[in-house]
Write a protein that binds this DNA or RNA. Structure first.
Lengths: 229, 229
DNA sequence: ATCGCTGCTGCCAGAATCTGACAGTGGCTT
DNA sequence: AAGCCACTGTCAGATTCTGGCAGCAGCGAT
């Protein structure tokens, strides 16, 4: 058994024993000398595992769990972060604090580009979407990640359809519908497109000339202006 | 730099290069020989990392991300799982599928006792809770984990207060409020207690005589019976 | 106060692992 | 055919890991 496997084993073993266990016992269960066990404990503590050792008693793992290295796809990470953000907004203060802590831990290890992706997926208002989507939201998300223009056919509130080229930079939940936030070339302004009113959607393969991050920032500023009126 | 650190570095390096990179280049950036790089790639692939190598091109990391070992508290895991379950229920099929996949991956590595804890935290109906809680939900969660009786003072719909001993086994979201699901000793039946109507709550320290898992199963059966009426 | 149990650290030699270099195979592109 | 590349096998040397030993410190029981 390699060292890294053994370290995970140690955590699991500590979880099984709820009461303090002596180092000698742990070493025996892992088939390793007590000296090595001390080194392993030190390594785990160095990685942030909440293991407490007290002379005369033994070791206890404070309640918690070490998630081993896991491979998630972009969308899985997005789903987890989105769900956690929702929990943060819930009134259960303990749980919402826990969710915030978890988010911070996850964000701390995410590479920059992925963290930016997540910023683009905003959660505006208490979400309670009803209508099923007609278009492929994954395509929208892809375009946002790649900072590429989209050609869409959109039916506005009045029912009139229009073709537009837009620069999408965020997918948002708003009231009961999902909304794609984008710069509209036709209007030369920010526009919100309800995803259930987007009739057709085609990737253009063309990159738009500004950074998504910059658009997002500018859009947020605009929102604040509106709110202050 | 230890080997395990370097393996994480490799993943990060592969993420930076979006286009295929040759093994020679990667080896150079990591400061190791190309032979070692091949071994590292093999190790990562063995751990499930979606790295693809093609002769004549180089290596690409299929979009995704490897979360390094992370320490979460019980409540953080609960928050993540609960949030992901919410995402699963959303109409965005791509994202909800991603959430389901992520949940499966997390469940696969959770120790049994923690997985049981999570079963007790159910998500019943589209949640949109408004009222803030008066009592300490963490105490309820603790009692559920430890399978211990609780003494509560509850105000029912009519406003009349009553003292009861209950065996809590699940915390649930229902309509707009949070609900503690428990066996009520007074009524000798399952009862749902809106957490915002629980006036006082005291731990008894007494274990109740049945397994939480069994209560949960029986309660679900009861629910189905009611639904079929 | 003494004893026993335990956590924790430094040290060192042997065991285990990792590493780099070399050689070779097979696929792909030019 | 030539060049680039992924990939595997082998092997000696470098590196790391491991176990045993010695010693210190904190705690509770005797």
């Amino acid at each position: 058994m390699s060292r890294s496997e053994r370290l995970l084993d140690l955590v699991q073993t500590l979880r099984r024993h709820r009461l303090p266990v002596s180092g000698r016992t742990l070493a025996g269960e892992l088939g390793v000398s007590i000296r090595t066990l001390y080194r392993d404990i030190a390594t785990l503590q160095g990685q942030g595992a909440p293991i407490e050792g007290e002379a005369g008693l033994g070791y206890v793992l404070k309640p918690g769990f070490m998630l081993p290295p896991l491979m998630f796809t972009d969308e899985e990470i997005e789903a987890i972060v989105l769900g956690s953000r929702w929990v943060v907004k819930q009134p259960d203060s303990r749980l919402s604090k826990a969710a915030a802590d978890a988010l911070a831990k996850i964000a701390a290890v995410l590479p920059d580009d992925l963290r930016n992706d997540l910023d683009a997926s905003t959660l505006l208002v208490g979400p309670r979407m009803g209508a099923s989507e007609g278009i492929d939201l994954a395509a929208v998300r892809q375009a946002i990640r790649d900072e590429q223009k989209l050609a869409i056919t959109y039916s506005d509130a009045g029912g009139a359809g229009s073709k537009r080229i837009v620069w999408p930079f965020a997918l948002s939940f708003f009231d009961k519908v999902r909304v794609m936030v984008a710069w509209c070339e036709m209007r030369q302004d920010f526009r919100h497109f309800r995803t259930d009113r987007i009739a057709t959607l085609d990737a253009t393969g063309l990159r738009y000339p500004r950074r998504r991050q910059a658009l997002l920032k500018q859009w947020r500023t605009t929102l604040e202006d509106v709110a202050q009126r």
